[in-house]
Design a protein around this nucleic acid. Structure first.
Length: 573
RNA sequence: GCCCUCGUAGCUCAGUCGGAUAGAGCAACCGCCUCCUAAGCGGUAGGUCACACGUUCGAAUCGUGUCGAGGGCGCCA
């Protein structure tokens, strides 16, 4: 500002200037590229301008010195007191350390998993679950008001197929010979549900194999169109069972699978605030409400007996059917209604976590937001790339209907919740994830989660050992003596601790929990190095307490960070 | 064909708003427990950031093109 007044710098706003963390301590704590950015406009050499800037920057007690380096960076070295302050902060705030106060932050709803209740969750769902849960926790820590929601798809054709498959298995259990379609749900859990129906209702819904299949078109087993066959089978089931009987198979299947999913997620440390039913959406008139909105805005037209949404005018690649020729609304109509419903429930931002196979939704939903006259920036979609499983070095093929899949539950049993949660989010979510089952099962030390947990356990162990002596940890003495911490390992550890709040901020802003995972690994590395290089429980009281304060602050950050990722922080290993 | 996400060490991956000598883990090699947990630490070696051109003080990062990988393109859900 002073330089602007003196006419050295132009009056207009200074653009694009950065003050950032340095990569190496020899460049100080922070660095600015301001001189290089402005040098050309001012007609000076960058280093020359940097010198002028340093002269004019007001002195601060936190800053030890500033240096000019390289092509014209201004490196800023902080006083040690600026660093030791983070230890006091961490100890004072405890399990709240890292939570950011950002009063202006929005209410945000995060929808994730939302798997159809047609079978148990598999390892592909696991990644979305781990990512969504961690992201929601991080957003909460960053000051957002977060709601976690699961969209229960209890209304579609897939659910009808499921109900029919349960019925067929039920008939088998009754002793009927029925042909089971290869493109149906073939998992063993279908028998389990059929057994429940049979236990409750006996043979009440029993029909002969002939009644079931008489007059139906050839199925996929006979070389026919499998989907046509399934639709015919659904119709046959409705005829034979009637509304009440059909509902028993449908509701038993949906209810049991959903309960199973809920238990599974709870055991995985994944919690939801709302389970939102698609059926409810339709029954409350929300779908009609959204369609009306599009019609009012002039985005609908009729063609071939169906009602279309002119999405191609709003950035989508083609127009979309909203109401089919047969009068039923499409799945897309429900999606639109659901989005509008989220906004009307008072969320400024609706964040969707989708599998990468849903990326076609992005343009479509955005077009819908525009068509309804809503701000499309309130819609945010994060795509999670697939986790590809490897067993014996080969890709494992997976398909829900065939019943050939590794369930999330199996994965948890094999590698543990902690390892699974961490493993899923340690890579960027927009990156494909190779999940080596054999490696994960081998319980080897290669999983970095153990490395981080071990750092935490080691610190706990230090405090246990302290208790066995006559010495006690005195936090006040330690806080006064923090200036005694001048070893390189100690300074490095403090620098890393001080990055925790900004790591949460970055992870929240970029929707990137993996940044936190990497941060925790770096913190554990600093701790392990320090542990090996120096003894904490030294005789000298002041130094001992200062070091204990430092490692306790480290433990706090490890624990808080792991909690955000849904990973436990064991006290001993 | 069109669209999306990508291509970084032998393998799996980080690399934030364009910044200084591109970093971890695993695998390989050499060391470190009389000492708070060796699930640890220190060191060595390993790179044409797929390729080409462009933008600029400066490109792994931005733009265009080529090659390669995975995915998506229904009046299915």
């Amino acid at each position: 500002m002073h330089l602007q007044r003196d006419g050295v710098l132009p009056d207009d706003r200074i653009p694009d200037v950065q003050l950032e963390r340095t990569r190496s301590p020899e460049h100080g704590d922070f660095a600015s590229n301001i001189a290089m950015k402005l040098a050309k406009r001012v007609g000076m050499a960058p280093r020359e301008l940097a010198e002028l800037i340093i002269e004019r920057v007001p002195k601060s007690r936190q800053v030890e010195r500033m240096e000019i380096a390289g092509p014209g960076f201004i490196n800023i070295f902080l006083q040690r007191c600026a660093l030791t302050g983070v230890i006091r902060d961490a100890l004072r705030h405890g399990d709240k350390y890292g939570r950011l106060r950002r009063p202006g932050r929005n209410r945000i709803t995060v929808e994730f998993v939302s798997a159809n209740p047609t079978g148990p969750l598999h390892v592909g769902h696991g990644r979305g679950a781990a990512y969504g849960a961690s992201l929601a926790s991080i957003l909460t820590a960053a000051g957002y008001s977060v709601q976690r929601e699961y969209y229960v798809n209890d209304n579609g054709r897939q659910m009808d197929i499921l109900a029919v498959c349960v019925w067929l298995r039920y008939l088998e259990l009754c002793g009927e010979r029925v042909s089971f379609p290869d493109n149906g749900y073939r998992g063993d859990y279908i028998y389990d549900i059929a057994r429940i129906v049979r236990a409750d209702h006996g043979d009440k819904w029993r029909f002969t194999g002939f009644d079931v299949s008489d007059g139906l078109p050839p199925g996929v087993n006979e070389g026919g169109d499998g989907e046509v066959y399934l639709d015919a089978l659904i119709e046959r089931a409705r005829e034979l069972l009637g509304d009440a009987g059909y509902a028993i198979f449908f509701d038993t299947a949906c209810g049991n699978i959903l309960d199973d999913i809920k238990d599974d997620l709870a055991d995985f440390g994944v919690r939801f605030d709302t389970w939102f039913s698609e059926r409810e959406l339709e029954q409350t008139g929300a779908v009609q409400h959204a369609i009306d909105r599009l019609r009012e805005n002039g985005h609908l037209y009729e063609k071939d007996g169906a009602i279309w949404f002119r999405a191609s005018d709003l950035g989508d690649e083609k127009d979309r059917v909203i109401v089919r020729e047969n009068g039923r609304t499409t799945y897309f109509a429900s999606d639109i209604a659901y989005f509008l419903n989220k906004l009307e429930r008072g969320f400024e931002t609706a964040l969707y976590v989708f599998g990468a196979d849903h990326h076609g939704y992005v343009a479509r939903l955005r077009a819908a937001a525009l068509g309804m006259g809503e701000d499309p920036d309130r819609l945010e979609i994060q795509l999670v790339q697939f986790a590809v499983l490897y067993r014996f070095g080969e890709k494992v093929a997976m398909s829900t209907r065939s019943g050939q899949f590794i369930t999330l539950r199996e994965l948890r049993d094999e590698v543990g919740t902690d390892a699974a949660r961490f493993f899923y989010v340690m890579r960027s979510h927009d990156q494909h994830l190779d999940f080596d089952l054999d490696l994960a099962k081998s319980r080897s030390n290669e999983n970095p989660v153990y490395y981080i947990q071990y750092a935490h356990a080691r610190i706990c162990s230090v405090f246990r050992n302290l208790e066995e002596t006559d010495q006690r940890h005195n936090r006040e003495i330690g806080n006064v003596a923090l200036d005694l911490l001048e070893e390189d390992h100690e300074l490095a550890l403090m620098r890393t601790i001080s990055r925790f709040p900004e790591t949460i901020e970055s992870a929240a802003r970029l929707r990137a929990p993996h940044l936190l995972a990497h941060y925790l690994h770096a913190l554990a590395t600093d701790l392990h190095s320090y542990y090996n290089a120096h003894q904490f429980l030294v005789k000298e009281e002041n130094l001992r307490n200062a070091r204990l304060n430092l490692v306790q602050a480290t433990r706090t950050v490890l624990r808080n960070g792991l909690a955000l990722l849904g990973v436990s922080a064991p006290e001993e290993m």
